[in-house]
Design a protein around this nucleic acid. Structure first.
Length: 874
DNA sequence: TACCTGGGTTTTTTT
DNA sequence: AACCCAGGTA
């Protein structure tokens, strides 16, 4: 659930829960089509009229009734429209709505789909939901077939981690140099790819997997004992059911006769197994997707599912939606060039009849702060000028942690914004504690919840007591709550502790009698009876207040949930509430109507669109993320991620990067993302604001980290730049040659037009040219300055053929800078910010040559000479 | 038992 | 910079 703010004031993060509660009516597993009061003929006529508005290929997809179909839908090609219209078309042709199931990945997408279906086919209760909800529903019904009780709990990541930790202990495996997290990762990896994780782990066979293979069965057993599932289990159980129970499979296949799967490129093999099993007798399976937008490989999404759909279903119809209705020509040109760099891909056209639009802007800011400030400033000005509203803008980034500076900059200007998924509301401790109480009421076997709340608030049941309870529970194979209830019979447990444990059990028991009351009532009872509220009220000042505010928020959500709750088959509202709380995601909370700037990760941006989009921090190790550069497949996924971001933009696209970025508390120089080199310059306008601020930052770094510890050399440890990208990039970096001498505010703009104005005299043609000579390999021992040197480009040499920065880089020249080796002990030097000083210490060579300078008025500082703005005097 | 402090670790993306 | 955990202390 995202934190949602307006100028710093928190808004309810529960909108999605609310929305879902409202929609719950249509969320039933197999709803029937209610006879509408509409004039059917009239409705059919209007539908036909609507079909006239579609493109031929859209129409072809819409009018497909039975049999498998693959819809390859490029970005902005009207995919959702096709899906909804097809559903309407099916209904118009007499298909009962309850036979239609549409599966999506996010609740947001599902809600959108439902909404639009309702508009198109009033009264048709088509089942639309996420894979997880769908499986959750099935699993509640068939829980007993997999050893669960229908009141099972869905464990979130935190719960899951706790159970895993316990399982590692229980399995008695020696972790050696591995960590629990690693074990968890391996298990998670396997569960995303197979519905027989045990076997898959054994097949992997490496030492870590072997360990995981010993932990996994314990984990799986504990899950069942706790009457719980994790996210993956929800899918896995259903996949297994379908595989192992032919009768059930047949029944469900017949029932869900028309299956639609959105974002098919993001399905993993478990989801594939489910979809496949439901499309055997009635293979009316329609999948839509775009291989170029596959960005969930890391969680097992298997792009071959979509690439090989036709092999799976040889008779499948394939429809391509290639016309883009969203973006300008220039934006699409950028997207198209970029994605063309992926090797593992089928060519796909991106066509549009939209206007050319304004150039895509690429800006290099000095540091992250400038980036944030100027983005915010741009937005502020556009809003002030009245040509845009706040909700026209979105800022996308690769990792959540990058949102901070933008939040600050926006807040400073009182621009309302929303962060989609800042941090999880439901994962905050106090909220999670309350939810754990609730969960324990419904599922008394939920040991994780028990452990979580047994001493929260403190009631004297400490570690030792819990350990003994746990021990006993493990011996007797009983849930902790049961053990606590009869704690006095446990040998070696102090009488006082046993009493307290018993008292706790009684508390839970008495609360669980109220389980069928409204969520708000139970919540209130839990808060007062457990002493939680009191404890929070007694904790001091700010923190306690925040927590109380969160609790109040939870109460609000409960109330609103109650109001919207529709009783279905005697299901308890509480159970429903809890399920929604875990499955609610952050993207769901997105508000598109209200006037706010939207901040989110590139992943979350999928499926959305905005008139004006900023994609920030397009830097090496961030946009191809440092952990995603190891192999080509991952790199291509990163490229697709940028592609997804770019194609969200309707009219304006701003790409940016900062020369210096603060991450994890330290300032490091950055290299531009290699993807930037792949973009077509003729559709762009590039602007480099230089490294002004660099000196200031350098100073800060020195102060923060001490002398010898300066961090950030190109060859320094912990900072790996792709030298070639850097150098190649420098060809278009356009800083004046003497950039290090002037703290210029001057900016340099390159467009194709500027190329004509190039002054060959300012280009040092004697410098080596060509990428090979620019890149300084380890072998080069000459005295070339190691600082990535800025230089002017010689675009006129290749006029008319300019394509990408990478190509231009081949034509670059170099400028000179003081050679690090030329500095001497006691040398007088000049620093643009600190003034004059004397070198008092020198060490290292090349890029690592470091000098300590004693300044007249700023004390001692240490510099890497290759990168420093120091100039020798005399 | 609870709180405090220091040290070590961390963030890729999410249902 | 922010968070979590361990270990020490009240």
């Amino acid at each position: 659930m995202g934190m949602d703010q307006v100028g710093g004031h928190q808004r309810s993060p529960f909108d999605s829960v609310r929305a879902m509660a409202h929609d719950d009516r249509s969320d039933g597993p197999w709803p029937t089509l209610e006879p509408t009061e509409l004039d059917l003929d009239e409705w059919r006529r209007s539908l036909l009229a609507r079909l006239e508005l579609l493109t031929p290929s859209q129409r072809e997809a819409v009018e497909h009734i039975s049999g498998p179909m693959l819809v390859l839908a490029g970005p902005g090609s009207g995919k959702t429209r096709v899906m909804t219209h097809r559903i309407a078309y099916l209904v118009a042709h007499g298909v009962p709505a309850w036979q239609i199931v549409a599966l999506t990945f996010t609740n947001k997408a599902a809600d959108e789909l439902k909404h639009r279906i309702h508009q198109l086919v009033p009264g048709a209760d088509v089942w639309a939901g996420t894979f997880h909800r769908f499986c959750g529903r099935l699993l509640r019904r068939y829980a007993n077939l997999v050893g669960l009780d229908e009141s099972f709990t869905i464990y979130d990541r935190d719960d899951q981690k706790r159970l895993l930790k316990e399982s590692v202990r229980l399995a008695g495996v020696e972790l050696f140099h591995y960590t629990e997290d690693q074990i968890g990762q391996v298990i998670g990896h396997v569960k995303n790819r197979s519905f027989d994780p045990q076997q898959a782990l054994e097949e992997l066979g490496d030492p870590l997997s072997a360990l995981a293979a010993r932990v996994y069965p314990v984990y799986a057993r504990r899950m069942i004992e706790c009457n719980a599932v994790d996210f993956d289990d929800m899918l896995i159980h259903v996949a297994r059911l379908l595989a192992e129970q032919p009768d059930l499979r047949r029944t469900l296949d017949a029932r869900m006769r028309y299956l639609l799967v959105d974002e098919y490129q993001d399905t993993n093999s478990v989801q594939y197994a489910i979809v496949r099993a439901l499309s055997v007798d009635h293979p009316n399976l329609v999948v839509t997707g775009d291989p170029d937008q596959s960005i969930y490989g890391w969680r097992g999404a298997d792009i071959t599912n979509i690439l090989e759909f036709e092999r799976d279903f040889p008779r499948a119809k394939v429809v391509r939606l290639e016309q883009n209705f969203r973006s300008t020509q220039r934006i699409l040109a950028v997207a198209d060039q970029l994605i063309a760099n992926n090797q593992r891909r089928r060519h796909k056209a991106l066509l549009t009849s939209n206007p050319e639009g304004s150039p895509v802007r690429l800006t290099h800011y000095p540091d992250h702060r400038d980036e944030a400030e100027q983005v915010a400033e741009h937005i502020a000005q556009r809003i002030a000028a009245g040509d845009r509203r706040a909700n026209d803008f979105a800022i996308f980034y690769r990792v959540n942690s990058l949102s901070r500076s933008f939040e600050m900059a926006l807040r400073k200007r009182s621009i309302p914004y929303q962060v989609v998924q800042g941090f999880e509301f439901f994962e905050r401790r106090e909220v999670k504690d309350v939810l754990s109480y609730l969960s324990l009421l419904i599922n008394p076997r939920n040991d994780i919840a028990f452990e979580r709340v047994v001493n929260s608030p403190a009631r004297g049941i400490g570690k030792t007591t819990v350990e003994k309870l746990r021990q006993h529970a493990a011996d007797q194979r009983l849930p902790l709550l049961d053990v606590a209830r009869s704690a006095t019979t446990i040998p070696r447990l102090a009488a006082r502790s046993a009493k307290l444990a018993q008292k706790f059990a009684q508390l839970i028991d008495s609360l669980s009698l109220k389980v069928h009351q409204s969520v708000e009532e139970i919540l209130g009872l839990v808060l007062s009876e457990s002493g939680l509220r009191e404890a929070l009220e007694n904790t001091d000042a700010t923190e306690g207040e925040d927590r109380l505010a969160n609790i109040d928020e939870l109460l609000n959500a409960a109330r609103e949930f109650d109001e919207a709750f529709v009783d279905r088959e005697g299901e308890s509202p509480l159970e429903s509430f809890l399920e929604q709380a875990v499955l609610a995601s952050d993207v769901d909370a997105l508000e598109t109507e209200t006037e706010r700037v939207t901040l989110m990760t590139l992943h979350a941006a999928k499926g959305l669109e905005f008139p004006s989009v900023f994609i920030v921090a397009i830097e090496d190790n961030i946009l191809p993320h440092a952990r995603a550069k190891s192999d080509e497949a991952q790199l291509e996924e990163e490229r697709r991620l940028l592609f997804v971001g770019i194609t969200r933009a309707r009219e304006e696209l701003h790409l940016s990067r900062a020369h210096y970025r603060t991450q994890r508390g330290s300032v490091t120089p950055t290299a531009p993302s290699e993807f930037l080199l792949e973009l077509p310059r003729e559709s762009m306008e590039c602007l480099d604001l230089g490294v002004d601020g660099h000196f200031r930052l350098r100073g800060r770094t020195q102060r923060a980290r001490g002398d010898e510890d300066f961090h950030g050399g190109v060859d320094g440890e912990g900072f790996h730049v792709d030298r070639q990208a850097w150098d190649a990039y420098d060809g278009v970096d356009e800083l004046p040659e003497d950039w290090d001498r002037q703290r210029s505010d001057e900016t340099v703009v390159t467009t194709d037009d500027d190329a004509v104005d190039f002054d060959p005299d300012s280009w040092d043609s004697s410098a080596p040219s060509g990428a090979a000579s620019v890149g300084r390999g380890p072998a080069s021992s000459n005295s070339t300055p190691q600082r990535p040197v800025r230089s002017k480009v010689a675009p006129s040499l290749v006029a008319g053929k300019l394509q990408t920065a990478a190509q231009m880089a081949g034509e670059e020249g170099e400028a000179k800078k003081a050679d690090p080796e030329s500095f001497r002990f006691k040398q007088l030097v000049l620093h643009p910010e600190y003034g004059t000083g004397t070198i008092v210490a020198l060490s290292g060579s090349g890029a690592k040559r470091v000098a300590t300078v004693k300044f007249v008025s700023h004390g001692e500082k240490t510099f890497r000479l290759a990168f420093s703005p120091l100039t020798p005097i005399g």
